[in-house]
Nucleic acid binder design. Sequence first.
DNA 1: AATAAAAGTGAGTACTCACTCACTACCGCG
DNA 2: CGCGGTAGTGAGTGAGTACTCACTTTTATT
Lengths: 222, 222
Amino acid sequence: MTKEDQMIEEMFNHEGDLTERQKKILAAAIESFAEKGYSATSTKEIAQKAGVAEGTIFRHYKTKKELLMSIVTPMMIKLMAPIIIKDINKVLNHDHETFEDFIRAMIDNRRKFLKNNVKIIKIFIQEIPFHPELKEQFMEHVGSKVFTRLRQIIDHYQEKGQIINLPIDTVIRLTGSTIIGYFVTRYAILPDADWDDEAEVDSTVRFLMKGLAPGGVIRRVH
Amino acid sequence: MTKEDQMIEEMFNHEGDLTERQKKILAAAIESFAEKGYSATSTKEIAQKAGVAEGTIFRHYKTKKELLMSIVTPMMIKLMAPIIIKDINKVLNHDHETFEDFIRAMIDNRRKFLKNNVKIIKIFIQEIPFHPELKEQFMEHVGSKVFTRLRQIIDHYQEKGQIINLPIDTVIRLTGSTIIGYFVTRYAILPDADWDDEAEVDSTVRFLMKGLAPGGVIRRVH
DNA sequence: AATAAAAGTGAGTACTCACTCACTACCGCG
DNA sequence: CGCGGTAGTGAGTGAGTACTCACTTTTATT
């Protein structure tokens, strides 16, 4: 875990305030929500899995939905935070001379986090279409900032002439599709296949760089 | 709609057998499942939306789950069928001389279908994690055949030297991510943005072709 | 027109749901 | 020790839940 992650951890993490039973409730809820979905999971079931009375859940969370939110909200902030928080000049000029460096750093940086939070992210993606507040919360407090920042970053590398001059949103879409597509197949669709992660990331980044290279015509170099 | 699509339509479509009320039930169920999710939708609600008594639903479908299946199963067969059914030699040698032709044909061919079935596909994707039978049905009867066929196709163009010699499954992943990523942003995430579809498909296909071009080093041609 | 099968109905059934509340157990503080 | 506050309990509540069934209406067949 990087220093930034630790900082973010401290900023948003109130897990220290939680009682043992509360932690058990959260763990049980995450387990069940991920396995059967929010709607198909009963509070009784969560209570049993946590080894706790049903009333205890409602002592800490007014409604079942509040329980869902308390799982999902801190995760999405933690997931997006590094992109927003990092000093942009540092990122662009010092740390990552090339767009490829930047992409590789991003993948490295977020991999561990994703790995440890597959279940919560699964819940988040599953439930987003059915809870408008969740979508709004995401768009207003996270999504828009992330996209603004991403646009700055793409623009920077475009001006440096490192990547093709397509509309910025198209570049974001193509880059996002490629990286998210890798993570989804790696951790959601085929998590049990034997992956050579280093090789796959390498292929993926090369593909991305070649695809986004400036100029339309390509010639093999012998 | 192509001739193949019509053929498939006739092969799998039993909509002619359905009564007016049954069609209304299906339409109402699709609407509600897509909007609120399968678990959060009650049969009473579906009946009301369809203007039908609750008992009528269970006259035609033994259980609520059977209703879900009757919506989702024919769709996934129709979605995948063209890839399986088409005469492979015709596809590879006659119709599509280059991999780019093949990709463009695929996007064109499936766009209309996707557009007309967004809701059902949404339901399918939402529910797949929670219904093992659905996943098995998909993998055994559709998934494996599609992947076998896709592997043949990729292999063919690799041997022709048109695309890079990465592991076939990696090529499928990269191609799939790019195309599915386009369709998902186009029809699920930002369906209301004003899209220049022709330009977007063009950028996407170019990106894919450049990314999968043989050889590791790229040089701009002036 | 007679008859049988199929389609449609809606009140009823057993059960589950999220959530409440009166109560007990434990904790730190004087 | 006494007191106040928080944590934990589990039986209880009314509003649903998927599904059934005895019955009526429509449709097809002769």
